[in-house]
Computed example of a mutant assay.
Amino acid sequence: MIPQGPRLGGNPSRLRLEGTPFITVMLGSMLTSLPIIAQSPVLPPVGLLLLLSWRLLRPELWAAWIALPLGFFDDMMTGQPLGSAMCLWTITMIGIDVVERRLIWRDYWQDWLIASFAVIFCTIGGLWFARLTGGGGTIALVAPQILWSVLLYPFVARQCAWLDRWRIMA
């Protein structure tokens, strides 16, 4: 049974407070290693979607540098050229910081727009990194993946909000 509120005098553990976002992003990155056979990349970058969801939901939770180790883990799990997610995710986090400083307020639609631009940037950037290392493909190859990712973001953000409520409850 899930308690309806924090227990009197109870505090959630430090691992639960600080570890939940890291673990969820890492599990999302590990989803791409499932044995799914496809001719083109159609599985959304769930690790990236979780990173964006946590960052846009709780801006105070992470600094921009956190994208570096999480991107490294994603590169290891997805098989992308080492450094691609590290670079792209860090640039994305810095870009979100810059956008946040310029906005007076932000709502759901702006979060979805920010996440959409970030997904497009990281997916096309990942394609560019793959082409640099001898891979091939065009933007049309990753277009379904971009579309699925943009459409899946609200669901992932909702799941992060649910996890965040669980995370802070004692």
Rank of each mutant, 00 (worst) to 15 (best):
Phe121Leu: 13
Pro45Phe: 11
Ile94Lys: 09
Gly47Ile: 02
Phe121Asn: 08
Trp162Phe: 04
Leu152Thr: 02
Ala38Trp: 03
Glu18Leu: 14
Phe117Asp: 05
Thr133Phe: 06
Thr24Ala: 14
Ile120Phe: 15
Leu70Thr: 03
Ser29Asp: 03
Phe129Gln: 00
Leu43Cys: 01
Trp105Gly: 02
Leu34Asp: 05
Ala140Gly: 13
Trp162Leu: 06
Asp107Gln: 02
Gly136Leu: 07
Phe22Asp: 08
Trp128Phe: 13
Ser84Asn: 01
Ile23Met: 10
Glu60Met: 05
Trp62Met: 15
Pro6His: 04
Leu56Ala: 11
Leu70Asn: 04
Met76Trp: 05
Trp148Asp: 03
Leu88Ala: 08
Gly9Val: 04
Leu103Lys: 04
Gly95Trp: 11
Leu51Phe: 08
Pro154Val: 12
Ser40Phe: 15
Ser40Cys: 09
Ile139Ala: 12
Arg131Ala: 05
Val42Tyr: 12
Arg102Met: 14
Gly136Asn: 10
Leu57Cys: 02
Leu51Lys: 06
Leu57Pro: 00
Leu49Phe: 06
Trp112Phe: 08
Val98His: 02
Ser33Tyr: 00
Gly47Ser: 07
Gly5Arg: 11
Val119Phe: 10
Arg165Cys: 05
Cys87Gln: 02
Pro6Glu: 01
Arg167His: 08
Ile139Asp: 06
Leu127Gly: 08
Gln159Ile: 11
Ser116Phe: 12
Asp107Met: 03
Ala143His: 12
Ile114Pro: 05
Glu18Trp: 15
